[in-house]
């Protein structure tokens, strides 16, 4: 049984955050909800449409396709970035002068703005003048990310892996560094193999940071926009048109604010649900 807290004055310290969140999240969210039930042609004139935009969206093949592409992209990059990030973190030195060098090298991709990453990879992978594109074609592989869907997908995934695996590495490395030496000494006395040490010491101790890493990578990759937009523009055709790119096309390209608002809310609910499922599954039995 928890005792009742008698002094509630600390709540006032939270007040500034509440006001900030109200203005940068709650008010825009309310506006999006309002828009999602109406039609507008601008000039603050709105017409009630009820659930029409939701019905159209949920039965739209275009939305289903974008959602499937988004889920496939997120599943792919999580399946690559998390094991790769953990493997790199395990390989990094824990002591000595190389620690700083490794950390700086790992942090570099994270410092590059997203649109610059897209532009870099666009030029790098161009089949006629790009170093990577020319190299792959020189090896006899037919590679052209501007025309071939497979090439476009592979390039988008590799670009994301290059940009964001570092985040998993740094978080996993922080988790590894927090493990006391006594655990390793005990494992050594018991004659534990490297796999046993990883399975029973390192992985459980990294659980919390890996939960954060997976959640961050899931949310970021599920909402990815700038990099694929600069790299492929959603093409060729619609093959790399993820949910966010499609949303911007509807909202800004077609100026269909009502349908775009409905799409935003469904998008938000999917992110919320999947984040909750990830978090709940990973933190299950944590308190016991």
């Amino acid at each position: 049984m928890t005792a009742r807290t008698t002094n509630q004055k600390a709540w006032w310290l939270v007040a500034p955050v509440v006001v900030l969140v109200a203005f940068n999240a709650l008010v825009p969210m309310m506006t999006v909800v309002n828009y999602s039930f109406q039609e507008t042609f601008g000039d603050n004139v709105f017409f009630w449409e009820g659930f029409k935009w939701y019905e159209e969206l949920l039965r739209s093949e275009r939305f289903h396709d974008a959602l499937v592409r988004q889920l496939a992209f997120t599943a792919t990059i999580l399946a690559i970035e998390v094991p790769l990030g953990v493997a790199i973190a395990l390989a990094m030195p824990r002591r000595g002068p190389w620690v700083s060098v490794c950390l700086v090298l790992m942090a570099l991709p994270l410092l590059i703005p997203w649109n610059v990453v897209g532009a870099m990879w666009n030029i790098f992978a161009l089949p006629d003048i790009g170093l990577l594109g020319r190299l792959i074609n020189g090896l006899g592989v037919d590679y052209n990310f501007t025309q071939d869907p497979t090439s476009a997908w592979v390039t988008t995934v590799v670009m994301d892996v290059w940009h964001w695996t570092s985040l998993v590495v740094l978080l996993a490395y922080a988790g590894l560094c927090s493990i006391p030496d006594a655990y390793y000494q005990a494992a050594k006395i018991d004659g534990a193999s490297a796999w046993s040490v990883f399975r029973h010491i390192q992985l459980p101790k990294m659980k919390r940071v890996l939960t954060i890493a997976i959640l961050l990578r899931f949310m970021d990759s599920f909402m990815i926009y700038t990099e694929p937009f600069v790299l492929t523009g959603g093409g060729p055709g619609n093959t790399t048109t993820f949910l966010s790119i499609d949303l911007v096309k509807v909202a800004l390209g077609q100026f269909d604010l009502g349908p775009a608002a409905a799409m935003s809310l469904v998008y938000f609910m999917i992110v919320l649900l999947l984040s909750w499922v990830f978090y709940t599954v990973m933190m299950r039995n944590e308190g016991t």
């Binding site: 309310m30 506006t31 309002n34 039930f37 603050n44």
Partner: peptide, 15 residues
């Protein structure tokens, strides 16, 4: 608040 495009239905939901 006209830019927020309030309706009584959505206001009732938030209330």
């Amino acid at each position: 608040l006209s830019w927020m495009a309030w309706t009584w239905q959505t206001a009732a939901f938030f209330v």
